[in-house]
Design a protein around this nucleic acid. Sequence first.
DNA 1: ACCGCCGGGTGCC
DNA 2: ACCGCCGGGTGCC
Length: 815
Amino acid sequence: MTSNSCCHPSSAFIDFLDVGGTMTISQEIANLTEDSGQDLPEENVQIGSIQGTVVGLRYYTGTVNRGEMVSLVRQPQNPYDRNAVMVANVYGSQVGHIKKELAAPMAYIMDNNLARVEGVVPYGETNKFSMPVNLTFWGKEENRDAVHNQIRRHGFKLGTEFKGSLICLFALKNAFDKLFDDLMEDKTREMEPAEVVCTSLLPHQKQALSWMTSRENSNDLPPFWEEKSGLYFNVLTNFAVKERPEKVLGGILADDMGLGKTLTTIALIASNFHNGKPLPLEQSVRSRRSSSTCKMKSTSKGKKSDQFEQHIRADVTLKVYLYYGAERIRSVKLLSEQDVVLTTYNVLSSDFGNKANSPLHKVNWLRVVLDEGHVIRNPNALQSKAVLELQSERRWILSGTPIQNSLKDLYMLMSFLKLKPFDVKEWWSRIIQRPVTMGDRVGLKNLQVLVKGITLRRTKNSKVAGRMLVQLPERRVFVQHVTLSEEEREEYEQVRKEGRKVIGRYFEEGTIMTNYADVLAILVRLRQYCCHPGLVGKYTGADDPGTPSELRERLINKITLVLNSGSDEECAICLDSLRQPVITYCAHVYCRPCICEVIRSEKQARCPLCRAQIKTKELVEYPGEEMQAGAATGENWRSSSKVDALMSNLLKLRNEDPTVKSLVVSQFTRFMDLIEVPLREYGFSFTRLDGSMAQKTRAKAIQDFQDSSPGSPTIMLLSLKAGGVGINLTAASHVFMMDPAWNPAAEDQCVDRCHRLGQSRDVVITKFIVKDSVEENMVKIQKKKQELVDKAFGVKKPQDLKQARMEEIRALMEI
DNA sequence: ACCGCCGGGTGCC
DNA sequence: ACCGCCGGGTGCC
């Protein structure tokens, strides 16, 4: 046993956005082919092919098999020929070079991005000095002539007949064999968790535990690899390598949300604690143990550490360290001594960005678990890079939506799992992504086999031995229309008239998108009026910038509006939710890392949305929610129609059954402040959870609310965004949605916090919608979108986004 | 012979 | 490489 401080800490958790679904995996894959067009735009055309020669074999160690794919890599720095094109096998080992005569036109084509070149060695794989290689050129249709001409100029001719690839035929047979193997393979064996786990597991959770444990303790080669005469073959791809492929002792637990992925993972940590043995009960034995555990989770979300407390016997000390917050101790030694380390994607990537000082990346973890693992779907995001660099043999992804948008997401997962050769983009594209995109059945089959081999997925509708996995109580939604008082209506119409005038002008000028922040501000004001007039802040229009400090103030106002609008704004660069949001002088909001990267990579950096010049030092940060002026909650407090509607519901409920607990959900934290007043007045005991609260305060709020003893809070004021994944609020059986969200999925998710495993009552959801208002228009848009989603399965087309937004604004403002 | 031809040495880019 | 190519040796029939 070495005294290396980075030995075996164990698991890591990272969270994601979870959208429930009831599809089987094969359906999900089938759907992929529909929207995958956006992944590979028009790069998919085959321009032509030619047979070339790989020379210099005797100087390199890389070997290939008959029918094996090879990659072509430019070597512009080669001292003998700046046109050199290296040939490498799937493992990246050099096999040789393309003969120089052909390398010359290839170099031009590759360097100018006229086409990508793919190679397959058809025969002659045992030749000593050179071997033939079939080269296929792929690229945009418009480059076809340029490529053909370039090749012709050098005395070659590019054939255009489609060359069926040998590899597919081989793979077909193997894939079918494997498919049947997988059908046979049972994932229904159950395993009892370790004694230290005090929560009893449901049958499907025991099955997951068994499957995960067997994957972790397996000495087998990774999926699809076989040993043959001292070489390792990949049966899907026909690749052979000398080195034993790295173990893949993990996979994807892709159960629907609410099926207990976290509990199962905790059971796994405790039951396969070290050397295949469970976490023992006796303290003395434990102290000699040399392993520890790390686990990653995402920001804001539920308290995983609480769940450890909840599910692990109290007389067992499991060392759990919360590695987040400014006070976190960046010590490799400390982390290595833990059984479980919980951290967040943001902490992980911020440490990672700060290269010298990321203890998380210096520890060799026993196990890394990405909770809500689909957050790493963007390969360029710093978070993803930081996750990929974590060291561990046992890599797990927990995700309710493993294949959320496209095959690219799946590539990232393969990359994280280090499932060779799919962790390298070129091979992923050639073997899976392109074939599937082009509708190749073999490619699809291979993808299915691949996913099946490493994924366990059950849905709420799956059955174990003929029974539903979980029987959830009913969930009923009521929309309660609220009529504004005369006074409120008057004010509302006033604001609406002004807003329509401003937005109408933008439409005429065609400047809607450049003034998007203003438009959003107007919409937010209207929505705030629907809730409570006291919410509405001062209007700062798009006047002249004034002094820098005035500009700054205006920008802070705007970014605050954007972020608090609850519209779930995406960063236009990473297309993901905003992280470390900043606003440009031209009033567009991006993640700081994303926009900084843009500025770094361009000499004359321009705003991706409006092409205005931007500079790093001109980015204005979001100051956080504390900055906001408190609403009038003092003596001059007044009620609103919506607040009245809520209160009458709450009072009625309390009358009928004082033990009933409710969630009161809003996107406006200041609305929550306002609601606190009448709650106090009527003697309700309540708690609160919003995005501005520290992790520890949140945990307390949740714990208080979940407590069922008399006098415990019966109401939780919950901000829509804080009600993210993972939080368990099953104590509530009523949900009041105070204001409609742009994104209905966000509302569903929020409701899922209480409508989940452990809920014993039927869940009643009441949505307050103000009649004849922007809120009604929002609901209409929601409905329309939902219909689209039902029809086309949520195709997200960035080029339509702008148009769609403009249409939305028209509909909302009735212009 | 400022050639042709022969046969050994040699060999990616 | 059981090739091509290079360059030295060589030279009527």
